[in-house]
Design a binder for these strands. Structure first.
Lengths: 343, 343
DNA sequence: TTGTATGCGTTATCAT
DNA sequence: ATGATAACGCATACAA
């Protein structure tokens, strides 16, 4: 930062006090209209740009929201960030975007940096490798920084959370398979440490239980959130088959489903004739596959928007209710589940 | 911001001066080891997190980079932002991400906000609707804020720029069509106000001229960067045909190509048998289409990375050379151009 | 090695 | 309506 025009310069230029300049610039009521005009003219003429850093120091408010995402390029997040940005822009906040690279240590580091930068609040989607919640609690309690989790949440520590109803959505999509007549259904699960992984697993088992369907030993395989994990998990499943194997797969998300589909094809099996599969996310690629993937559409923009709104509410009103918000999902039925509609 | 632990509190707690605390916390050489240890212990015990806002005010440096993108969700940008973030993280900078929504007014507003927040530099990819460069010049000259443009650049105003070599890449991909034997080739161009739109158009015409191929009247249609524009432009082209129409299309980018392909199909024409087409971007969808799209891969991550590196170089060394950097592209030959390789 | 005074650019507070 | 002073939290410059 080179030295720039300040309130002081304007004040000297006009031979008035800094306070009058400040008041004029901030459109406060008790300033003479002519004085105000003079100040505004001078500030324009001198290309004055207020120093928000100084302002933030005295007002203890930065109008900045810290955002922590595990993987910026993950189709869900650009949309979510877009939603966050839109709300932030409208409400006069900036967003400081950071990336944890799914790494708990890095997540902790960026959270500390954001706290140090005195962001007014934090929007966090938890990294896969996170195993304890101390950092979030500390930041909230000791630093008084509000946190709203989105998509991947941490419950029971006094933070609001905005996500889709993962459990219910997983139950619904599993039900869809069951209604189509599938009985031997396996699940490629997410990491057990991440809330949405657990919730989707729960939704899957719930649907199965409701229909009195057994989940054979080894039919729940941890795949993680990425294509490679889905590929490996599916191979593991197909290689360990003794009595015919599963007839349908519920994958924790679309990338995992893509990997699984690759493995299925490599085993010489057809989709959906031999094995049906459904995903979760409505990745942009899902409808373009050779066998388009039945999946659950997550309104990412909506999640980001709601999360940002909730966070700003917490920031501007300490008494804002802490709660978990769910955004409605939508089933997208394509041909991979064996119920060809209009494809 | 609630009131938090400060250097003063630590100093009082230990009965020493603020300066000693400050030195210890910043690992300055001239501090007694035992004193330093005491300070570090106390700061940990008291959950001290330094106030970067205050630090920035006195040091006139925020370690923050402002990023302006026209459309966060545009496949290219998440990758580029990822590259920016990676470099920033390694060099100890944060990024403040803003979105112009392709709107010149909004871009101007966010640039002013970022300047007000005293970011150390600006990374800008210009919005489509921008028609003059005053704002960039002002920010650079009057505020002394370095700007590095990326992807969509503004030349000749003393800012560095990182992009792919659009003209050369467009020339190459057009050449590819020409070598395959196509002679009647049309171009769906980008907005004429955006640098990459112009450069690609230039590359196209250059390739045609080099091979002494004529570009018939009406064979260059402005389509913009989006699918809908490509669709409309292609329809216009096909509807205005008098003597057979084009045998091949060079689209300004993949989304425009997608739109054009839709129009071609709707006219009952086959790709590539009746009309061949190539795009530009290697959008994630390009290879998944029914007829996979031949295109130019843009290493977005690389562009972001180089741009961030260049900007930080400008920030940390006022004499850093202003220059235009090009990142190498790669042709991705698929079946839409009629030269089926391994697809 | 440690401490004191001062200033970064702005606004809150109290005064006129 | 306007101004003087102090304060925000920290680091620079200088002194001891």
């Amino acid at each position: 930062m080179p030295r720039r025009v300040t309130v002081k310069h304007i004040a000297q230029e006009l031979g008035i006090s800094m306070m009058t300049v400040s008041r004029a610039l901030n459109d406060r009521p008790n300033v003479d209209e002519r004085t105000k005009k003079k100040v505004l003219d001078a500030s324009k003429r001198m290309s004055y740009i207020p120093n928000s850093v100084a302002k933030s120091l005295v007002q203890r408010k930065t109008h900045t929201i810290g955002v922590v995402v595990p993987e910026i390029t993950h189709s869900f997040f650009p949309e979510a960030i877009r939603g966050i940005e839109e709300v932030a822009y409208k409400k006069g906040y900036q967003i400081m975007l950071t990336h944890s690279a799914e790494d708990a240590k890095r997540e902790k580091a960026v959270i500390h940096t954001l706290a140090s930068k005195r962001v007014d609040g934090l929007l966090i989607s938890v990294a896969e490798s996170v195993h304890n919640n101390e950092i979030y609690k500390q930041i909230m309690k000791q630093q008084g920084l509000p946190i709203v989790f989105f998509d991947r949440c941490v419950y029971g520590i006094g933070a609001s959370c905005v996500s889709i109803n993962d459990e219910e959505s997983a139950r619904m999509i599993t039900n869809h398979l069951i209604k189509l007549g599938y009985k031997k259904i396996a699940h490629l699960s997410g990491p057990k440490t991440v809330s949405i992984g657990l919730a989707r697993l729960k939704g899957f088992t719930k649907a199965m239980e409701e229909h009195k369907l057994k989940i054979p030993e080894g039919y729940i395989v941890e795949a993680g959130f990425h294509e490679i994990g889905g590929y490996k998990a599916m191979n593991k499943l197909l290689d360990s088959i003794t009595n015919g194997g599963p007839r349908a797969i519920v994958a924790v998300n679309d990338p995992a489903a893509f990997g699984a589909m690759k493995a299925i094809n490599e085993h010489g099996l057809r989709i959906p004739e031999d094995i049906a599969i459904v995903g979760f996310s409505d990745d942009i690629r899902a409808e373009l596959l050779k066998t388009p993937l039945t999946t659950v559409r997550q309104p990412a923009y909506e999640v980001g928007k709601k999360a940002a709104e909730k966070l700003i509410a917490h920031i501007e009103n300490k008494k804002e209710k802490i709660e978990d918000l769910a955004v409605e999902t939508e089933q997208v039925i394509r041909s991979s589940c064996g119920a060809v509609l209009n494809n």
